[in-house]
Design a protein around this nucleic acid. Structure first.
Lengths: 173, 173
DNA sequence: CAGTAGAAGTTGAACTCTCAACAGCCTGGA
DNA sequence: TCCAGGCTGTTGAGAGTTCAACTTCTACTG
C-alpha cells in the first residue's frame, strides 16, 4: 500500500497513498473492523442476532406499518437482495418478521416486523446503543461528531452512485 | 435507536443518541458497509482474494523477512487467531504464504510471504489503492484526512483495550 | 397485442468467519 | 522438580454472505 516496498511493473504508475493518507487508512481499517466486531459480539451474545439483522429490524420499526418492500429494505440496509432474502428467512423462523404479498405488484414481497420482532428489538436496543456510545460517541467531541458525519456523507455520495453497485450480470443462456 | 419510537421497559432509561449522533451513526454504518463491500468486490474480482486476505499479505510484505508469528499477524490485522488460521490455510493452498516452525518457541508458528504471494500482492495493489482513492481520499480535504485519522485513533484506544476483545473462555472440563 | 428487456425475489453452492473445544508448549511458584 | 495455568495455534460445526442462475411478473416498444 505504501510506495516504499512496492513498484509498479506496468506502465501506469499508480498514485500511492501519502504518509498522512496511509496513516488515516490504517487507522480507519483497524477501527472499523474492531468496532463492527464489537457490535456483532455484543448483539450476538445479548440478543442472538448479528448487527446486520438488528439494522433490518430497526429500519422496519421506523417505518409506517412497520413494513417495507424487500427491495427498499435492502436499499436502506445497504444489503444485497440475496443477503436480505437469506436474512429475512432467518428472521421469519424467529417469528420476528413476516413475509406477505405486495398489493399492486405481484413481483414484490413485503417484509413486516411482527410484535415479537418489535419486542426483540426493544430488548436489544439499550445494550446496543450503550455499546455504540461506549466505543464511539462517548469518546468524540461535538465537532468530531459533525466531522464524522460530513466525511461519511461525502463517501456515501460516491458509493451510492457506484456503477458496480447496481451491475447485475444476466443469465448465460 | 432513536428515542422517538422506543421506550425502555426496565428501570434504567438508556441514554439514546441525539439527533446529531444518530445522523452521524447512520452515515457511518452505511458508508463503512458500502466501502467494505466495494473493496471486497474489487479485490475478489481482480485478484481473487477478499480485503481481509489482502491485508494479511500486505502486513507480511512490510515486515523484515516477510515473516511473522501467527499471533502477531493476527494482532496487526485485527483478526482472531481462528480467523487467521483459516485464512492462512487458504493462502497456503494458493502458494502465497508458507507456515514454518518458530525457532525458540515451539508453540508458535511463523507465516512467511512467498515470492508468488508477493507478486500476487504487487499485482493487486494498484487496483486496490485506486479503489481506496476513488471512494475515499479523492473526496476528502487534507483537513478531513487528519480529522478521520484522529477520530479513528480515538476509537482505537478504546477498542484495543476492550476486555471483551481478549476474553477467551476456557474449556469445559 | 406480442415480444422483450428489465425489475423483484429466491435458491444452492462455495466461501469466510465465529465459537467452543482441544492439544501442545512454556513458566512461575509451591 | 513439578504441575497448574496461561499462551499459541488448530479444528469442525454452524451461521452469514456472495455469486450466479433461475422464475415470475411488469412495462416498454413496435
Amino acid at each position: 500500500m505504501s510506495s516504499r516496498s512496492m513498484d509498479a511493473v506496468d506502465g501506469q504508475e499508480p498514485r500511492w497513498l501519502s504518509d498522512d493518507e496511509l496513516d488515516a487508512w490504517l487507522s480507519y481499517v483497524a477501527s472499523s473492523t474492531l468496532l463492527e466486531a464489537a457490535l456483532d459480539r455484543q448483539l450476538q451474545r445479548d440478543a442472538g442476532m448479528p448487527h446486520a439483522y438488528y439494522q433490518i429490524l430497526a429500519m422496519l420499526s421506523e417505518v409506517p406499518g412497520r413494513s417495507l418492500r424487500m427491495s427498499d429494505l435492502a436499499a436502506i440496509t445497504q444489503s444485497s437482495q440475496s443477503r436480505l432474502s437469506h436474512a429475512v428467512s432467518r428472521l421469519e423462523c424467529n417469528g420476528w418478521v413476516l413475509r406477505e404479498p405486495c398489493p399492486g405488484d405481484r413481483r414484490s414481497t413485503l417484509a413486516r416486523l411482527t410484535d415479537a420482532g418489535f419486542e426483540a428489538l426493544a430488548a436489544a436496543a439499550p445494550g446496543h446503543v450503550s455499546t455504540v456510545r461506549h466505543h464511539l460517541f462517548d469518546r468524540l467531541s461535538c465537532d468530531q461528531v459533525r466531522q464524522l458525519r460530513e466525511i461519511c456523507n461525502t463517501m456515501l455520495q460516491g458509493l451510492a452512485a457506484d456503477p458496480e453497485q447496481a451491475k447485475r450480470p444476466g443469465p448465460r443462456r
